[in-house]
Design a protein around this nucleic acid. Structure first.
Lengths: 231, 231
DNA sequence: TGGATCAAATTGTGATCACAAAATGCAGTT
DNA sequence: AACTGCATTTTGTGATCACAATTTGATCCA
């Protein structure tokens, strides 16, 4: 019998369907790395954990699978995907590609008050970081990026970016566990500077640096150690 | 009562689930533009059209929604998204961004025999194009691009690219209907030349030109006319 | 003619059940 | 101790049913 799965609580407004609620619970758990790569998920197990019947859970699982946050094996068993060097490198490269693109397109719509708000958000990220609060730091970092990309409302880019975050999520906690000190040079400051100057090229570079230095460096060292141990 | 929905047939191997089959039927229909933007889809209607019960259809619909090929309104009604100038421009720009990226990364893995195969595929596209066979021409064009991107097996990029095709699909037939003569300069030749030279920059440029000149130009004129008529 | 009202039909949602396939656990054998 | 064979349990799948919300369409009134 698999150990019971506990999903972090998530607020449930009155009008959300069971399917949507199951989706949010599971998605949030994956996003903050609460479920380890390789973990197998059963429909009935999730149904019990969330407190709904199997039917809405199945729909939630299909959604997550389509976002590539879950993987359905040929056995039809559903698992959190394992991370490999190749996949990790691809995810980071794709994040750079799309997020630089999205940031550049958002730049013309960026206002000074918006940049002020981003600066305040960055301060909160620093606090969460110093407090070693991985969940808050991850969530706030996502919000920082999302606020930038969503300045120009982009129905196309945002879902793709969030899918990439979701795919990196489960690996985050693993990576953080392997890095003795997971600090990052604060590239957000460079992003903010580029925004203030309305410098598209500097913005793209800063965005790429932030991604590669943050998750990128963290994950690479973690992967090296994991693979090293396995060998 | 809404007019009955007829979905193009799709082969059904013995071991595919009803849910997967419903997904494939609907996805293919959307991809080749067989369902018009704005069309509302009902679960029971689809279940009857596909010949399964509502349950697997619901899962298929969730998958397509997560790929942004369908849109769930607040009424919980599910519709094929309408195309707007902004969304169209975004989809094309995103295709350029990701497909150029993917093609560049595939380039080092490209063999001469593979390029030969692509050349033969391109010839078939020309034939389908001259025969005014929109479905075949669309399918083969997708295959041409997919063969390039999948040269380096990319579990990350491919699903995102296909999601973009899927979002453009329903609009394709509309666009083709508005263009009196939908011909395109054959940019595939430029792509092939860049591949043979192993020229990454030329490849990215050719890829972008192909996308913008093909669907891009076609859609832009169509949108202009549609919006012109509406005004 | 245009708009409000209300009953009937339609639709999405979620739980339950039955079934088949796969995984699991336990003997028994070598 | 390791492997095989078989019964049991677990698991995914799909159909059906009940229920609530929405939509539809006809009727009535101004």
């Amino acid at each position: 019998m698999p150990e019971a799965l506990s999903l972090p609580e998530v607020p449930r407004p009155n009008d959300v369907t069971s399917q949507e609620y199951a989706y949010r619970r599971l998605r949030h758990a994956l996003m903050i790395g609460a479920i380890a790569p390789g973990r197998a998920l059963t429909i009935r197990g999730l149904a019990e954990a969330v407190g709904v019947s199997p039917t809405p859970v199945r729909e939630a699982l299909r959604r997550l699978s389509s976002e590539n946050a879950l993987h359905v094996l040929e056995n039809r068993r559903i698992v959190v995907p394992e991370m490999t060097t190749q996949r990790f490198e691809e995810l980071i490269a794709m994040r750079c590609c799309i997020e630089a693109h999205a940031a550049e397109r958002a730049l013309p719509y960026m206002s000074d008050v918006k940049i002020d708000e981003l600066e305040m958000l960055d301060a909160r990220i620093d606090s969460a970081f110093e407090a070693n609060d991985l969940e808050a730091s991850t969530t706030l970092n996502h919000r920082f990026h999302k606020e930038i990309h969503a300045t120009n409302p982009t129905p196309v880019a945002l879902p793709m970016i969030e899918s990439l975050w979701l795919q990196l999520g489960p690996f985050l906690r693993v990576a953080a566990g392997y890095a003795q000190e997971y600090y990052t040079v604060d590239r957000h400051k460079e992003i903010l500077t580029a925004l203030r100057k309305r410098d598209a090229i500097a913005l793209a570079i800063a965005m790429e640096s932030d991604i590669r230095d943050g998750v990128g460096r963290l994950g690479r060292t973690a992967l090296r150690r994991i693979l090293g141990e396995a060998a």
